[in-house]
Design a binder for these strands. Structure first.
Length: 861
RNA sequence: GUCUGCGUAGCCCAAUCGGUAGAGGCAAAGGACUUAAAAUCCUUCCAGUGUGGGUUCGAGUCCCACCGCAGACACCA
C-alpha cells in the first residue's frame, strides 16, 4: 500500500461532490421505511456563522446520518428565518434593499454550512421572506381569524417617538429606544393578537406528554404560562358622586386573607384612576409618572412602591367596612383585573405600601407553633385563620375554598383560573415582515383580503430610512385599495407580523414545500411530529411556545392532525467566548486578540491593551463569534465535527477553547494511519469473513474481538442517548487498541484488525463522514458508508469470560481477584473469605454482601 | 427573591441499579525519530468528587443544610 498523508482538503470536497451528484440526501418518500424527521432550528441569515451554529447543525447531521444508517427514511431539511430587523438596519446603513441583503447572506451562509458536509435535502430549502412562503401564512392567518384565534384591539405598547415604531421590551434600554435613544412612551395603539390564552390549559397540560423534552424547558414553559386559581369578585365603590356604577372587580389567589383587607390598589391605567385624574391634576401627574417608567422589567424592579389616594372607597363584602382605594405603580393592568385587594399583613408589597402610607395592618393568619416569624414583614406562609369571624380556626388552605364557597353561595364572586400568559401581540410597524392580510374600510371595518388575492406582497420600491414611520405606511400607492366587500375606498393594514410567526410553522412546510396549499395533508401528517428537534436553550420559552400554539391552532383550523410539533427536544448548550473591548468601547473579536497567561489581553495588530470582559454567548453585538471557516481550512470538516461532538456533552454550555482541536486532528490522523500505515495489506477486507469469538484461542485476541463488539454496542447506545462525547471517546479507545496490532504478523490478529478497522469506520462515520468513506474505499469496498447499514454486534462477543472481583472488608478495598464471569454467589463468597483472611483474622464475620459480577463486601468486627 | 441545571486531576470531561473514582482528550515533563525544527510516536505526573451533616455493609451517585457558578423568571395580587 502506498503511504499517503491524511489530506482532508482534497478528499472532503470530493466526497461531498459524490454525495451530491448521486443525490443521496434526497428524502426517500417511497414510504417503505419508517420515517424519522430530524430538524435543527433554522438560522437567521445574518451572513456569518460561528462555531455555536456549527455545533447545532453538526449534531443534527450526526443524528440524521445515524438514523439513515439504521434504516429510517430521514427528513433533514434546512431553510432560513429570513424576515427581521437586521435586514432593515442594513438597508438603512448601506442603502441596499433588505431582500437583496438577505439573499446574499443566505448564499454566503449556505456555502459555509456546506463546508461541514451536512446531509441536508436542499430541495426542500425555504426562506420565510419569499412570497411563496408567506402567502400560505397569510392564508391560515385569515382562517385563524375566522375561528377567533386572531383579533385586533387597542393595547399598551412601547412607542419610540423618533423612530415612529413600536419596540419590543428587550429593545428598550434604560427607558430609551435602543437606536434612537429617545425616551420611550407608553402608548395605546391598535394591535393584532393571537389568542394564545385560549390554549393556555392545553399548552400547560400537554407538557406532560412531552417526555422527551428536557425537564428544564417544560418547567420554564409551565412557569411562563403561570396558571393560578383564585377568587374574582366585585367591590361596591363609593366616590364623590355617590355609588360608582361599575364597582371594582378584583382577582385574588388568597381568598383566605379576605378579612385582612385594609385597602385596595388599582393600576395607573385602571378606569378608577382615570376617573380620579379627571378633576385632579396631581393624580394625572402621578399616572403620567408611572407610565414614564416604561415597561421594561428592570425599570419596574427598581421603582419604589408608590401610590396616590383616590377619593373612592371600596365596601368590604363581608364586614361592610369602607376601605380606601389607591392608585399604585406596582399594579399591572394586564394581569387579572388591574385591581387588587390589599392584605398588608400577608403580602410583601402590600406591607411595604401600608408602612409607607401608614395604613392599618390586620393579621388574619397565625403561623403554626414553632415557626419563626420575621418581625417587620408580611407573613406569607401557611397557618390558621384568626380575626376572621366565621372562618376562624380554619387551616388557611381549607379557608381558601371556604371563602370562595361563601362568595359563590351569595352569588357575588366566583372561582377563577388566571394565567400569566397573555395574548401574543404580533403587530410590528416594520417593512421587512409578512404583511397582515387585512383591509380597513370605514364602512365595513376590518376585512380579510380574499384568499384568491393572496399573497399580499411587499412592494419592492420602498425607501427605508429608519425614521418617519413604517415604509409601508409611507408608500404612495401600496396601501390604497378598494374594499373587497363594498368596493369603496379603503386602506391596507400596514403592520407586518412578528417574525416569530414565520418560525412557528416552517417545520410543517418543509414536508411539502411545493404544495399549493399551506400544508399538504398527506405529507404533513406523515412526517409530523418532528422526531428530534435541536436548538439552543435560549429558545426554551418563546419560539417553542409559539410553535406549539400555532400547531394547535393549525389543528383546530384543520391543517394538521398532531397537537404537538416536536416529539423530542435536544437543547444544545450555548457556546461562549470571551469578550474584549478597546479604549473606544468597541468590541474586538477574539481572533484579533492575544490573550496572555496573566489574564490580560492585547490587540494582535495594534498592541493596545484591551479590557477583558466575561464569557458571553457568541453574538454579533458582542463581536465575539468565532467563525468555523478558518478551522475547516486548517483542519478540515471532519476534525471540526469530531471536536464539536467530543469536547463536552451537547446540552452543556461550552466555553469555546480551541486547545482540543489539535487532539481531534491527531486522532483522525491516527485513524488514517490504521489503514495507510499498517504493516500488511488491508484492501482485501471481506465483510463476510469475520472470525467468531469461539474460534479464537488466544486470550488477548479474544479481548480484541470483544473490544470491537463492545465498541459497536457502546457507540450505538451512546448515539441513541445523544451522548456524543462518550461515543467519540469509545472510538478513540478502539483506535488505541487497534494501534497495538498495526504491524502484527499473526494471521488471526490481522483478520481481527481488519474487522476492527472496518467496524471503527462504520461507527465513526456519522461524526466523521468524509475520512471514513475514503478509508472504507481503501479497504477495497465498492459501497459507500453513507448507504451502508449500521453495524450490529455479536452478543456472544460482548460477554466477558473473566471478571475482576473486588473484595472489600467493611467497605474498604482489600483484594482484587480475577474469576470466571459466571462464578456463583457461594463460590465468590468462599474465594473472597480466603483472599482476605489476614484482614479478618480475629474478627467475627457479621454479614457478607455479594454483588454478582462486581464485588464482595465482608462486614466483620 | 423564586425556579432549574451544574460543581470530579492544572483544564475539558467519564464513571449502568448506590458497588474498584478514571474511559477519552488537552496541557505539562521526559524520551524516541531528525543535522535541526515541525509533525509523529512512546512513557510519566496529578484528584478522592464545592462544604458540613444524614441514610447505608458501601455514597461522586440518595436525603437535608450551606457555598459557588450558569440560566430562566421576577411587583402576576
Amino acid at each position: 500500500m502506498t503511504e499517503t498523508r491524511y489530506n482532508p482538503f482534497t478528499l472532503e470536497p470530493e466526497w461531498q461532490k459524490r454525495w451530491n451528484d448521486k443525490n443521496v440526501f434526497k428524502t426517500d418518500t417511497s414510504g417503505t421505511k419508517p420515517k424519522y424527521y430530524v430538524l435543527e432550528m433554522f438560522p437567521y441569515p445574518s451572513g456569518k456563522i460561528h462555531v455555536g451554529h456549527a455545533r447545532n447543525y453538526i449534531v443534527g447531521d450526526v443524528i440524521a446520518r445515524f438514523k439513515r444508517a439504521q434504516g429510517y427514511s430521514v427528513l433533514h431539511p434546512l431553510g432560513w428565518d429570513a424576515f427581521g430587523m437586521p435586514a432593515e438596519n442594513a438597508a438603512i446603513k448601506n442603502k441596499v434593499h433588505p431582500g437583496k441583503w438577505t439573499h446574499k447572506n443566505i448564499e454566503e451562509m449556505k456555502t459555509d454550512l456546506n463546508l461541514f458536509g451536512l446531509s441536508i435535502d436542499w430541495d426542500r430549502e425555504l426562506a420565510t421572506c419569499e412570497p411563496n412562503y408567506y402567502k400560505h401564512q397569510q392564508a391560515f392567518f385569515i382562517d385563524m381569524y375566522k375561528k377567533g384565534l386572531v383579533y385586533s384591539k387597542e393595547a399598551h405598547v412601547n412607542w419610540d417617538p423618533v423612530d415612529q415604531t413600536v419596540l419590543a421590551n428587550e429593545q428598550v434600554v434604560d427607558g430609551k429606544g435602543w437606536r434612537s435613544g429617545a425616551p420611550v412612551e407608553r402608548r395605546t395603539m391598535k394591535q393584532w393578537f393571537f389568542n394564545i390564552t385560549r390554549y393556555a390549559d392545553d399548552l400547560l397540560n400537554d407538557l406532560e406528554g412531552l417526555t422527551e423534552w428536557p425537564e428544564q424547558v417544560r418547567t420554564m414553559q409551565a412557569n411562563w404560562i403561570g396558571r393560578s386559581e383564585g377568587l374574582t369578585f366585585t367591590f361596591d365603590v363609593t366616590g364623590p358622586e355617590g355609588q360608582y356604577a361599575d364597582g371594582m372587580k378584583v382577582y385574588t389567589t388568597r381568598p383566605d386573607t379576605i378579612m385582612g383587607v385594609t385597602f385596595c390598589s388599582v393600576a395607573p391605567e385602571h378606569p378608577l384612576a382615570a376617573e380620579t385624574a379627571k378633576n385632579d391634576d396631581s393624580a394625572a401627574a402621578f399616572i403620567k409618572e408611572c407610565q414614564g417608567l416604561g415597561t421594561s422589567e428592570e425599570a419596574i424592579e427598581k421603582a419604589e412602591k408608590k401610590g396616590y389616594k383616590t377619593p373612592f372607597t371600596a365596601k368590604h363584602p363581608i364586614t361592610g367596612e369602607d376601605v380606601p382605594i389607591y392608585i399604585a405603580n406596582f399594579v399591572l393592568m394586564g394581569y387579572g383585573t388591574g385591581a387588587v385587594m390589599a392584605v398588608p399583613a400577608h403580602d410583601e408589597r402590600d406591607y411595604a405600601f401600608a408602612k409607607k402610607y401608614d395604613l392599618p395592618i390586620k393579621q388574619v393568619i397565625e403561623a403554626p407553633q414553632g415557626t419563626e416569624v420575621e418581625a417587620d414583614a408580611a407573613y406569607t406562609g401557611a397557618g390558621t385563620l384568626v380575626n376572621s369571624a366565621e372562618f376562624n380556626g380554619l387551616d388557611n388552605d381549607k379557608a381558601k375554598s371556604a371563602v370562595i364557597d361563601w362568595f359563590e353561595a351569595k352569588n357575588i364572586g366566583e372561582r377563577t383560573v388566571n394565567y400569566r400568559l397573555r395574548d401574543w401581540g404580533i403587530s410590528r410597524q416594520r417593512y421587512w415582515g409578512t404583511p397582515i392580510p387585512f383591509i380597513n374600510c370605514d364602512k365595513c371595518g376590518t376585512v380579510p383580503v380574499p384568499k384568491d388575492q393572496l399573497p399580499v406582497q411587499l412592494p419592492e420600491d420602498v425607501e427605508i430610512t429608519g425614521h418617519g414611520g413604517n415604509p409601508l405606511d409611507l408608500h404612495p400607492s401600496w396601501k390604497h385599495v378598494d374594499c373587497p366587500e363594498c368596493g369603496g375606498k379603503a386602506v391596507r393594514e400596514t403592520d407586518t407580523m412578528d417574525t416569530f410567526v414565520d418560525s412557528s410553522w416552517y417545520y410543517a412546510r418543509y414536508t411539502c414545500v411545493d404544495s399549493d396549499l399551506p400544508l399538504d395533508p398527506e405529507a404533513v401528517n406523515h412526517w409530523l411530529p418532528v422526531d428530534q428537534y435541536i436548538g439552543g436553550i435560549e429558545h426554551a420559552v418563546l419560539h417553542l411556545l409559539y410553535a406549539r400554539f400555532i400547531t394547535k391552532a393549525l389543528k383546530e383550523v384543520g391543517y394538521v392532525n398532531v397537537k404537538e410539533p416536536f416529539k423530542a427536544l435536544l437543547t444544545q448548550g450555548m457556546v461562549l467566548s470571551p469578550c474584549y473591548r478597546d479604549s473606544k468601547g468597541e468590541y474586538i473579536n477574539p481572533l484579533d486578540v492575544i490573550a496572555h497567561s496573566d489574564g490580560t489581553a492585547t490587540h494582535k495588530e495594534t498592541g493596545e491593551k484591551l479590557e477583558v470582559l466575561s464569557n458571553e454567548k457568541m453574538s454579533k453585538s458582542k463581536n465575539n463569534g468565532v467563525p468555523p471557516k478558518p478551522l475547516v481550512e486548517t483542519y478540515g470538516a471532519d476534525t471540526l465535527r469530531l471536536f464539536s461532538m467530543f469536547c463536552a456533552p451537547i446540552e452543556r454550555t461550552l466555553e469555546w477553547a480551541e486547545s482540543g482541536v489539535d487532539g481531534a486532528w491527531r486522532y483522525l490522523g491516527r485513524v488514517w494511519g490504521l489503514v495507510n500505515e499498517a504493516g500488511f495489506s488491508l484492501d482485501d477486507y471481506d465483510v463476510n469473513k469475520h472470525l467468531l469469538i469461539d474460534d479464537i484461542s488466544d486470550k488477548k485476541l479474544k479481548d480484541l474481538k470483544r473490544k470491537i463488539h463492545k465498541t459497536i454496542r457502546k457507540v450505538t447506545s451512546d448515539l441513541e442517548k445523544m451522548q456524543f462525547n462518550t461515543s467519540v471517546a469509545a472510538c478513540m479507545e478502539l483506535a488505541n487498541t487497534l494501534g497495538e496490532y498495526r504491524n502484527t504478523q499473526d494471521e488471526t490478529a490481522q483478520l481481527l484488525y481488519k474487522e476492527g478497522v472496518a467496524s471503527l469506520l462504520r461507527v465513526l462515520n456519522p461524526v466523521a463522514p468524509h475520512i471514513t468513506e475514503e478509508l472504507w474505499k481503501q479497504l477495497g469496498q465498492t459501497t459507500w458508508l453513507v448507504e451502508e447499514e449500521w453495524p450490529g454486534y455479536d452478543e456472544n462477543a460482548v460477554k466477558d469470560d473473566e471478571i475482576t472481583l473486588v473484595i472489600q472488608v467493611n467497605g474498604k478495598l482489600r483484594e482484587k481477584l480475577t474469576v470466571a464471569a459466571d462464578i456463583s454467589k457461594e463460590d465468590a463468597e468462599k474465594e473472597a473469605l480466603t483472599a482476605v483472611e489476614p484482614h479478618i483474622a480475629g474478627l467475627t464475620v457479621r454479614k457478607t454482601i455479594v454483588v454478582p459480577g462486581r464485588l464482595v463486601n465482608i462486614v466483620a468486627n
